[in-house]
């Protein structure tokens, strides 16, 4: 018997090679053939190995079947019922509709707001244009029209003269206010800002004038009164400050 003895320990796995290479020792003259015990032991080994393999085979077959089923289930997974698809489709449509309604609402609001804005703007422009034109016409008529006073134009001319006089006064008032406002600014600038942060001032390139300009910003708080007066008069008369000064010149 060779190294791979048929009676080798049970721990060693029986492989096809072992079976192929098995060699039994020959018996004695009294017992010709292979040695019985060796053959019996080998048959035992083969049968137990076959048992084991049969069992394993059955287990594997079962496992394969289980896996095949899982695979089929996985392949069939994207088969939600028509009913489920229908329910989700309805829910999606409802959501889409809400979003669309919100967008439509926003569209309507913004376009209305824009229309309103443009309308206001063009109205304001027209008004301003009309006022300027009226003032210019009035100016022309007053300077040239006095020599040929027509009966129908008489009250209008008087009206306009009154307006022009008012505008002149208004312009004058604006100028005075502006001037005093600016002067107040400059005075404040010199007293407050410069004194508080002398170090922060850059090198004055033009003597004493620079600090006055630099400090102009803060002083506005102190001179709001003058500014308010101007602002208040404008709406009352409806005459922009610019027109006032045109009329006086």
């Amino acid at each position: 018997m060779t190294t791979s003895t048929p009676t080798a320990g049970d721990g060693e796995r029986l492989t096809p090679d072992v079976v192929r290479d098995v060699r039994f020792t020959h018996g004695t003259m009294l017992h010709p053939g292979y040695t019985d015990t060796e053959v019996d032991a080998f048959v035992d080994r083969v049968s137990s190995e076959l048992d084991r393999l049969t069992l394993e085979n059955a287990q594997l077959r079962e496992q394969l079947h289980r896996l095949e089923q899982q695979l089929a289930a996985a392949a069939n997974r994207p088969s939600p019922s028509d009913q489920a698809v229908g329910i989700l489709a309805t829910a999606q449509l409802t959501a889409d509709q809400y979003v669309a309604e919100a967008e439509a609402f926003s569209r309507q609001m913004t376009s209305e707001a824009r229309l309103h804005y443009e309308e206001q703007l063009s109205r304001a422009r027209e008004k301003a244009g009309a006022i300027i034109q009226a003032a210019q016409e009035a100016g022309v008529r007053i300077s040239s029209g006095r020599s040929t006073p027509e009966v129908s134009a008489q009250p209008a001319t008087e009206d306009l003269e009154e307006q022009v006089a008012y505008l002149r006064a208004f312009g004058q008032a604006c100028r005075t206010q502006l001037r005093s406002y600016l002067e107040a600014l400059l005075a404040d600038v010199e007293t407050e800002w410069g004194r508080a942060h002398p170090a922060a001032l850059p090198e004055p390139p033009r003597g004493g004038r620079v600090p006055r300009q630099l400090r102009a910003a803060q002083a506005s708080f102190h001179s709001n009164e003058a500014a308010d007066d101007v602002a208040e008069q404008q709406p009352r008369t409806g005459v922009p400050a610019g027109t006032g000064s045109t009329a006086t010149t």
Binding site: Q92, V99, A100
Partner: peptide, 24 residues
């Protein structure tokens, strides 16, 4: 397409977040 997307989202819910709220 409504049916298609509903089918897709039901069979693979993880794909839903790749799309905006409104699918219109």
């Amino acid at each position: 397409p409504l049916w298609f997307y509903s089918h897709l989202f039901l069979s693979h819910p993880e794909t839903r977040e790749l799309f905006p709220v409104s699918m219109a």
